[in-house]
Design a protein around this nucleic acid. Structure first.
Lengths: 335, 335
DNA sequence: AAAAATAACTTAAACGTTTTAGTAAATTCT
DNA sequence: AGAATTTACTAAAACGTTTAAGTTATTTTT
């Protein structure tokens, strides 16, 4: 049995209230008794039961974090951002990986609510978060982040995908490229949509015709990039001089296809990705890509939640949009 | 204010005890009242307060997980193994990233104890876990895992590094290699030591002279691999025909150095890594390496903790050693 | 020296549950 | 019909804390 305040009280010959006060450094307790209590508590190896304390004090310092797939390279870093700030403010984190499964998301949200987290930070599985809102019922603050955020949400921290794509395309046009194709898996999230729009804008600014190739056969990542690139290479009269991929994995896939077709990167065609996942920076790959402020996303999300928790706790309707940065490496060059 | 059993009781005109029974499907409650209570509880959007329940029932279903750095590619997958099994058994996970900092490790261990987790799974920052044992005082079960486990620990799940290295070296000798050098950053963990021993054994079995190059100038990962390889290329009369690196990042570094020296992989020298981090399998890299059963480490750790929690909860002194597998790709070839 | 103030405690209620023991009413038994 | 049993509840204690209010004994004030 773990030892409690009562055990200390008994051993010290005082009341539990006295122990509580001594332990919390409150005033009305004598120096001698205080020291005695502290000594005994140390001897017995007492650890305060925070959850019992929270019960009476109301309010606790646990936050829930929901992530669709922690092994997707962006999330560990976001979590570290959250974790760091959480440590700073004394929060403890309940983390669950939903595995991109809506049922799991539902289940974990309930678990978190039952565990009386003070607030939630969720990177939702799907664009539709109505079941989350319903379960939470505005009882605690919630912040959304990640790839499935959209303008309809009340509070989220996101990244300016439009601007990120614009950066990528401007880089390419600046190098003299005119036939730039964008490859994409599907278009069913706002994140993807914004990147496409940014690309369109970047092209139109230079008077170039946008050319978006969507491969929505259900493939993802490398395989999708490879399939898309292969089909582009086969189907067109002129091959593009540059490719802008929806994400780094697709960019890698495209590079594989180019390699397979005997084309050199960036000699024959330049490639730009999006995300800056860890291996993008490996010298063997050297992918030019759009970096996301991952750590900062986590920090900001926690910071906002913290502010709301300190304040009224209501919906803040705070949408924070962070800015991505272009990382120029070796897969892009002059046309 | 979140609504409680009392609120439901008041609205239904019954006692809190009746509500509790109805909600938990206990027998001695009338059908009519049960339905009324259930209806009202649904209407009010009641969510049980699990932590209040745990207080009276004793024992809870929260486990603590401590990880040194969640952005190190192996950990997300381990966490998913833990997470999956946790969901299955109804555990909730408190996760903290210690950032490889001993002070943080201490702090988070206390936090977890104060939050009355039922058990702990920790991948320690250092080989010495005495401060953890001291804080935990055998009050709850604990399982160690990760890179800093050693035989002195009472309960851990680890990987057979000795055998993993043996696999790597046998592969190389099987291809006809005789001058195989192992490169290593330092030798201060059992994990590293075991890999070196496995390498030694593999060499000696074939009557070859082991050749371990330790670069302990404080460099890590790619930089260390590059530095080590560069020095080997400069300092020896005969260059080795194969390199076995302590880990994948060092292998990548070594490949960079080889490339810089105009040597082809695997034409001139074969390279084997260890860990099988995600990009090892990219076709551009195609690193032959030793894979670790990451997901299974997580699963096993949770499974063992669960068994102990169901049982006596005492030290199990269970050491589970999982087996690694060789992943042969394109950086190795016949001499 | 009596009254007032202060120091150092203790008592008891509260937080949101569960559960044991108790109770009144309805039903079954003989 | 009266006793015994069952049904459907309620009362109260418990879990480990905190805290407002109460109680002594001691010190200070006048």
């Amino acid at each position: 049995m773990r030892i409690t305040i009562k055990d200390i009280a008994k051993k010290a010959g005082v009341s539990p209230a006295a122990v509580s006060k001594a332990l919390n450094g409150q005033p009305d307790i004598g120096e001698a008794t205080r020291e005695k209590i502290l000594r005994i508590s140390r001897e017995l190896g007492y650890t305060p039961n925070i959850i019992a304390r929270n019960l009476v004090m109301k309010g606790n310092k646990t936050l829930g974090v929901l992530i669709p797939d922690i092994s997707t390279p962006i999330y560990p870093v976001i979590f570290q951002g959250i974790n760091e700030r959480a440590g700073k403010y004394g929060y403890t984190l309940l983390l669950a990986d939903t595995g991109r499964d809506l049922g799991n998301e539902r289940k974990f949200i309930s678990t978190m609510m039952e565990n009386r987290v003070a607030g939630l930070m969720v990177s939702p599985v799907s664009n539709d978060v109505s079941h989350i809102e319903e379960a939470v019922r505005n009882q605690i603050p919630i912040i959304y982040f990640g790839g499935k955020v959209n303008d309809g949400m009340e509070d989220y921290v996101g990244v300016d995908n439009y601007h990120g794509a614009l950066l990528a395309v401007s880089h390419l046009t600046g190098l003299g490229h005119r036939r730039i194709v964008m490859i994409c898996d599907d278009l069913n999230t706002k994140t993807r949509f914004d990147r496409v729009e940014g690309y369109r804008k970047g092209m139109e600014e230079k008077g170039l015709a946008p050319d978006v190739f969507v491969d929505d056969e259900g493939l993802k990542g490398r395989e999708c990039g490879m399939a898309a690139m292969t089909r582009i290479l086969r189907g067109r009269r002129e091959i593009p001089s540059a490719v802008f991929a929806l994400n780094d994995l697709m960019a890698i896939g495209a590079m594989e296809a180019l390699d397979g077709a005997g084309l050199r990167v960036p000699g024959d065609v330049s490639v730009v990705g999006y995300d800056d996942i860890p291996f993008a920076s490996l010298p063997m790959i050297g992918l030019t890509t759009v970096w996301q402020p991952k750590f900062q996303i986590g920090e900001t999300a926690l910071e906002q939640l913290h502010q709301r928790l300190k304040g009224d706790g209501g919906r803040g309707n705070h949408k924070t949009i962070l800015q991505p940065e272009l990382r120029i490496r070796t897969t892009t060059g002059p046309v």
